[in-house]
Design a protein around this nucleic acid. Structure first.
Length: 751
RNA sequence: GCCGGGAUGGCGAAACUGGUAGACGCAAGGGACUUAAAAUCCCUCGGGGCGAAAGCCCCAUGUCGGUUCGAUUCCGACUCCCGGCACCA
C-alpha cells in the first residue's frame, strides 16, 4: 500500500481547519488504514510507503538531481496556467475546459520561472511503444496517442526582405503541398518576432495594443469552442515565400498558439478552413491550390482541406498532394529553406508548484554561482515545520527563514533555497518501484529487487489516470532505464481500468449527498457482503451502481450458505466411498469440480469476478436441492460435504471472514487462508453425455442426449427419430449436414 | 470536425473461438409455512400466436443490409449514448 499523501487536499484542509498538513494526513492514513483492514484486503503492510515521509520523498529529490545532471530538468520562463483561487500553477492537463480541475475557477495566464522535466525527449518513444502495449485497452492507448500528438511536417523559412539583418521567420506545416496558396503569414501574439517586425511601422501601436490585450485574456477565451472570434492585426511587414518569391503580409492572430510548432504559420485560405475564415474577415486574398482528385467539385462555401491534385502551383500543377509534398521537400532542402520535422503536441512537464505540501525541489540559488544542485549527501531537503499556512500569497516555503537561507554548496556564500515544491505526479510516477525495496536508505530501490518483480503483471487504476499518471510513469521508467536502474522499456504489462462506484446513476460526492460510507455499510451487512456485492454487481471495468437491494441479495446468499453448513458444524468429513455412487451423487460431484474449474478460470485469466460468484451460487443452488432430495447415507453425506467445503474454499477470496468462520466450525484445524486453492479433478468434471442441438436450416428443432464423442451417423439416426425433427424433414430433401461434435447437428433441407 | 468505446428482459448482467440468447442476482406475481407479519422454502417471470392440455409455432440482442448451413459474435451503412483530442497549422 502506498499513500499518495502529498498535495493540495491536505494543504487546503489544513488551511481551513488550522491543522498542520502532516497531522491531518497522518490522521487520515490511520483512519483509512483501519477501514481497509476491516474490509479484509490482503495488503502487505510491511511494504507500506507514503509520499509525504522523508524516507520516500528524499528519492524524489534524488531523481530530480539525476535528471538535472542529464539536462532532463531545467528552468525556464514560461506562460503558465495560473489558478488565482489555488494561487498556483496548473499543468495543461489540470486545466479542464479552461477551468481549474480542482476548484473550477477560471484559469488565467502568468509568466513565471518554472522547473520543467523534458518529457519531450521521450515523446517519440512514448508514441512508438503504444502499439506494443497490447495489455492496455485501445481506449487508453488512443487517449495517449492524442495527447502525445505526433505530427510529421516541414519547417519552412520565410525571409523578411525589408529587415535583412533579422532571422528568417520559421513556420511549421504538414501541408507543404499547399505552399503556393500561402497568401499571408500569422504569428502568435507571444511570438518574439512581433515587436521587431512592427517597430517603426505605422502598425506599431495597433499591434502593441492587440498583443497586450491578448496576453491578458483568460485561458477559457483562447478556446474557439467557448466563443473567441478570430481576430488579428497586420504587423506592417512582409515575408517572402521561398518557393514563389512572392511577398506576403505578416499578421498577428489570436488563433495561432505559441506552444505548438514555431508559433507561426503560413496561411493557405484556399485550402484551410481556419485561414479562410481569417482571410474573409480581413479581406486577404484567397487562392485554392488543391482540388479534389476525382471530378467532384470543391465545396463553394468552404475550403477544400483534403489531399487532392495541385493547381495554381506553377511547375507542380497536376501533381497529387503526396507526390507534390515530396517534390517540394526535396526542392526546399536543396535550397536550404525547408527541412522535415516531427512535431509533438505534448509539452515538457511543468513540475513546479508554489505550494507547501510537496517535495522541496533540491536546488539552491546563489548570487555568484547561479542555480546549484543540493549535494546528494545533503538529501533529504526537509520540509520546514514552522510554516504558517494562510492560503494567500506566493510560495509558503519563502516564509520560513530557516529554510530559505542557506550557504552555497559551491562557494559557501549566502544563498537562497528553491521554494517551489514538486507536482505530486512526481511521487506517483515511480512509487511502485519502491514497493520492491521499501526500506532502502542507500538508493530508491535495489535494482536486483526491482528486476525480480518487474514489469508489473497487472496494474489497476481508474480511467481518470489514462493520460497524466500513465504517461508520466512510462516516462520515468524510460529515464530510469537510461540511468541504468532498470532494464525495462515499459513498466506495466496489463492495465485494467476499473469503473466507478455510482449511487443513483452518478458519481458519489459530498455535494450531491449520495455518498455511501464504508463504515456504515460494514456495520450493517459486514465487510464480506460489501466485498461480495461490489464484485458481483458488474465486471470490474464497468461502472457499477450501488444498489442496496443488490447488497441485501448478497447478504441473503451468505446466510443461505451458513444455513446449509450449520448442520455439518462439528461433524467429521467422511471419505467418499470408492465407486457405486448414485447418478445424483455423481452429478453433484461433477458440478462441484466443474465449479472449481470455472471459478479458477474466471478469477485467474478473465478477472470476471461477477461470473465466478454466479458459478458459486449455482453450486449452492445444486447443493440445496441435493440436500433436500437424497437419502442420508454415508456416500450422500460425503458428496454433500465435498461440495460444501468447495463452496467455502472458493468463497474465500470474496468473503474471507465468513469463509474462515465456516471453515473453522466445520472442524478444520488449519486456517483456510493457508489451505491451498482447491484442485479440480478433471475426470470427475467431465460430462459423459452431452445435449446435442439438432437444427433444421439453422433453426433449433430438437435436442438429443448422446455419449460424448458420438459420431455423426448415430446422431443423425437419433435426430431422425425425434418426431419434432422428423416433422420438419418430412417431404423435403436433405441437401447437406453440418456436424460439430458434441455441440450440434444442422440439417440443411429443401422443399 | 477527427479518433476510440458502447447499445442484450422491468433492472444489474451472462453467453470465453461463429453453434441452444437471457446463466446468476435484483425487482415483480403466485403458492406453502404462520393467528398475523418477518424470515424461509417452492413455482412463474422477453413479446406474440395456436391449443382443453402436453406441447407447438412466430418475433426478439439499437436500425437497415451483407457474408454463412447457422450471426449478440464477422463485414458495410446508419441512429443514439459515453469518452478523448481539437483554431495544433
Amino acid at each position: 500500500m502506498g499513500w499518495d499523501s502529498f498535495g493540495l487536499p491536505a494543504e487546503n484542509a489544513a488551511i481551513k481547519k488550522g491543522i498542520h498538513p502532516r497531522i491531518w494526513t497522518e490522521d487520515n492514513i490511520t483512519q483509512m488504514k483501519e477501514q481497509l483492514k476491516q474490509l479484509g484486503y490482503s495488503y502487505d503492510w510491511s511494504r507500506e510507503i507514503a509520499a509525504h515521509r522523508p524516507d520516500f520523498y528524499r528519492w524524489n529529490q534524488w531523481f530530480f538531481l539525476k535528471m538535472f545532471e542529464r539536462g532532463l530538468a531545467y528552468r525556464a520562463h514560461r506562460w503558465v496556467n495560473w489558478c488565482s483561487t489555488c494561487q498556483t500553477v496548473l499543468a495543461n492537463e489540470q486545466v479542464e475546459g479552461g477551468v481549474c480541475w480542482r476548484c473550477s475557477s477560471v484559469v488565467s495566464r502568468k509568466s513565471l520561472e518554472q522547473w520543467f522535466l523534458r518529457i519531450t525527449t521521450y515523446a517519440e518513444e512514448l508514441d512508438a511503444f503504444l502499439p506494443k502495449l497490447t495489455g492496455w485497452s485501445e481506449r487508453v492507448r488512443q487517449m495517449q496517442k492524442n495527447w502525445i500528438g505526433r505530427s510529421e511536417g516541414v519547417l519552412v523559412k520565410f525571409r523578411i526582405p525589408d529587415l535583412p539583418e533579422m532571422d528568417p521567420l520559421e513556420i511549421f506545416t504538414t501541408r507543404l503541398d499547399t505552399i503556393y496558396g500561402a497568401t499571408f503569414c500569422v504569428l502568435a501574439p507571444e511570438h518574439s518576432a512581433v515587436a521587431l517586425l512592427c517597430a517603426g511601422t505605422p502598425q506599431e501601436e495597433p499591434v502593441r495594443e492587440f498583443v497586450s490585450r491578448m496576453m491578458r485574456r483568460d485561458v477559457v477565451h483562447q478556446d474557439a469552442q467557448l466563443g473567441e472570434e478570430k481576430e488579428g492585426v497586420f504587423t506592417g511587414r512582409h515575408a517572402e515565400n521561398p518557393y514563389t518569391g512572392k511577398r506576403v503580409p505578416i499578421w498577428v492572430g489570436n488563433f495561432v498558439v505559441m506552444e505548438y510548432g514555431t508559433g507561426a504559420i503560413m496561411a493557405v485560405p484556399g485550402n484551410d478552413e481556419r485561414d479562410r475564415e481569417f482571410a474573409q474577415l480581413y479581406h486577404l486574398p484567397i487562392l485554392p491550390v488543391v482540388r479534389p482528385a476525382d471530378s467532384s467539385q470543391a465545396p463553394p462555401d468552404r475550403a477544400y482541406t483534403e489531399p487532392g491534385v495541385l493547381l495554381n502551383s506553377g511547375p507542380f500543377d497536376g501533381m497529387a498532394s503526396a507526390q507534390a509534398f515530396e517534390a517540394l521537400v526535396k526542392l526546399g532542402e536543396e535550397k536550404g529553406c525547408a527541412r522535415r520535422m516531427v512535431q509533438f503536441r505534448i509539452r515538457d512537464w511543468g513540475v513546479s508548484r508554489q505550494r507547501y505540501w510537496g517535495t522541496p525541489i533540491p536546488m539552491i540559488h546563489c548570487p555568484a554561482c547561479g542555480v546549484v544542485p543540493v549535494p546528494e549527501q545533503d538529501l533529504p531537503v526537509l520540509l520546514p515545520e514552522d510554516v504558517v499556512l494562510s492560503g494567500e500569497g506566493g510560495s509558503p516555503l519563502a516564509a520560513s527563514p530557516a529554510f530559505l537561507q542557506v550557504s552555497c554548496p559551491r562557494c559557501g556564500k549566502g544563498a537562497r533555497r528553491e521554494t517551489d515544491t514538486m507536482d505530486t505526479f512526481f511521487d506517483s510516477s515511480w512509487y511502485f518501484y519502491r514497493y520492491t525495496d521499501p526500506g532502502n536508505d542507500q538508493a530508491p530501490f535495489d535494482s536486483t529487487a526491482a528486476a525480480q518483480w518487474f514489469p508489473i503483471d497487472q496494474y489497476i487504476g481508474g480511467i481518470t489516470h489514462a493520460i497524466l499518471h500513465l504517461i508520466y510513469c512510462r516516462f520515468f521508467t524510460k529515464v530510469m532505464r537510461d540511468l541504468g536502474l532498470v532494464a525495462l522499456d515499459e513498466p506495466v504489462v496489463r492495465l485494467l481500468n476499473q469503473g466507478m462506484v455510482l449511487k443513483d446513476g452518478s458519481a458519489m460526492s459530498k455535494s450531491r449527498g449520495n455518498v455511501v460510507e464504508p463504515d456504515a455499510m460494514i456495520r450493517r451487512y459486514g465487510a464480506d457482503t460489501c466485498r461480495l456485492f461490489s464484485l458481483f454487481a458488474a465486471p470490474p471495468e464497468r461502472d457499477m451502481d450501488w444498489n442496496e437491494q443488490g447488497v441485501e441479495g448478497c447478504h441473503r446468499f451468505l446466510e443461505r450458505v451458513w444455513r446449509l453448513a450449520a448442520p455439518q458444524f462439528s461433524t467429521q468429513a467422511a471419505p467418499i466411498p470408492e465407486g457405486a455412487l448414485s447418478p445424483r451423487e455423481t452429478a453433484l460431484r461433477r458440478k462441484t469440480h466443474q465449479t472449481i474449474l470455472r471459478v479458477t478460470e474466471d478469477l485467474d485469466r478473465r478477472m470476471h469476478f461477477n461470473t465466478a460468484i454466479a458459478a458459486i451460487m449455482e453450486l449452492v443452488n445444486e447443493l440445496s436441492a441435493f440436500h433436500l432430495a437424497g437419502t442420508d447415507d454415508g456416500a450422500h453425506r460425503a458428496c454433500f460435504r465435498e461440495g460444501l467445503e468447495t463452496v467455502v474454499r472458493l468463497l474465500n477470496p470474496f468473503a474471507p471472514h465468513f469463509a474462515e468462520e465456516v471453515w473453522e466450525r466445520l472442524g478444520s484445524p488449519e486456517l483456510l487462508v493457508h489451505v491451498p486453492w482447491p484442485h479440480a479433478n478433471l475426470a470427475l468434471a467431465e460430462e459423459p453425455r452431452v445435449e446435442l442441438v439438432v437444427q433444421v436450416n439453422g433453426r433449433l428443432r430438437g435436442k438429443v442426449i448422446v455419449e460424448k464423442g458420438t459420431a455423426e451417423p448415430e446422431v443423425l439416426e437419433r435426430a431422425r427419430n425425434d418426431p419434432k425433427v422428423e416433422a420438419h424433414l418430412r417431404g423435403k430433401s436433405l441437401l447437406k449436414t453440418v456436424f460439430v461434435p458434441d455441440r450440434l447437428l444442422n440439417l440443411v433441407v429443401r422443399e
